[in-house]
């Protein structure tokens, strides 16, 4: 045996591992699996339901109606020149994408323990498939949003798309990265400490109210106690929701520093999530 063959190893299974061990070649090899997981997520959710994919639409619509009734009609929250319903629908559509990415990835390990315990494939495929299949749902919900958008414009409401619309894909990317990153961190910890699964459910709910989804930041600045305002104002989630409404509805505020700061946070959270996920995937099956 010569040194030549020694170097030819396809891969090594070892106890030591690098901080980030993403094998893109391998992920590419499993691209078909990624697509099939996406297909599975989309196709099977509403099998044996009457309304089927309509549910993707019904949920944000009804939430928006309720928000409008409670926060705008009852709570007198001002949304400027934008019709409150459209304002809420924009926030909820964006928030939904983040929320679904987060909750979908946060149970990666616990809900796939059965498969993970038996076969190997790059584990990142599962959270990635969640993000992609949610992207499709997001697209459907966005279509509905634009239908109402067109309706309100036709009715003479003063809404218009902002010139920053080119940043739209980056906003989507930020939501995906944040949801994915946080979801991967949570999923890694839930393999050992199952308390987190309980936390995620209502934590996300609370986070929504703290992230300016049903109200504009300007209202928060006016009415919230002063110690709480920075939490809302500088939360990356608020930045995304507010920015999202800014580019679509031309309402609220936008600052480049805020945008860049959120982008950096998103990447940090994503990388951190990836590191922790990587560490966990090697041995989670022993603790889950």
């Amino acid at each position: 045996m010569n040194n030549n063959t020694e170097d030819n190893w396809l891969y090594t299974i070892s106890s030591k591992h690098k901080l980030i061990d993403l094998n893109f070649k391998e992920i590419w090899r499993y691209r078909d699996l990624l697509l099939l997981f996406v297909k599975r997520d989309i196709v099977t959710v509403y099998k044996q339901t009457i309304l089927g994919p309509l549910w993707y639409v019904i949920q944000p619509l009804f939430t928006s109606v309720i928000f409008t009734l409670i926060f705008n009609n009852l709570g007198q929250i001002q949304t400027g020149s934008v019709p409150p319903f459209l304002f809420n629908l924009a926030g909820i559509t964006a928030w939904n994408y983040f929320r679904l990415c987060l909750t979908g990835t946060s149970n990666t390990f616990s809900s796939n323990a059965g498969i993970f315990g038996k076969v190997y494939f790059p584990r990142v495929i599962v959270p990635l498939s969640v993000v992609i299949s949610n992207l499709l749902k997001f697209a459907i919900q966005l279509c509905i949003f634009f239908c109402f958008y067109a309706y309100y414009v036709f009715q003479g409401s003063l809404v218009s798309i902002n010139s920053e619309i080119i940043l739209f894909p980056i906003y989507v990317l930020m939501m995906a990265l944040l949801g994915l990153g946080l979801g991967m961190i949570i999923s890694s910890f839930t393999t050992k400490y199952k308390d987190l699964t309980v936390l995620v459910g209502f934590g996300v709910q609370l986070l929504m109210y703290a992230s300016a989804v049903p109200y504009p930041v300007s209202e928060a600045k006016l009415k919230f106690p002063s110690w709480f305002v920075p939490f809302v104002e500088y939360s990356p989630f608020t930045q995304i929701i507010e920015g999202f409404r800014y580019i679509l509805l031309n309402t609220g505020s936008f600052s480049l520093t805020g945008f860049l700061y959120t982008l950096i946070i998103s990447f940090i959270v994503f990388i951190l999530g990836l590191i922790i996920f990587n560490k966990t995937e090697k041995s989670f099956i022993d603790t889950v």
């Binding site: 190893w9 090594t12 299974i13 070892s14 038996k118 076969v119 190997y120 041995s283 099956i285």
Partner: peptide, 16 residues
């Protein structure tokens, strides 16, 4: 360990 479902505590496996 060979099928990479779990990782070893020590040692390594090389495969072609």
């Amino acid at each position: 360990i060979l099928s990479r479902v779990t990782s070893p505590t020590t040692g390594e496996i090389k495969t072609k």
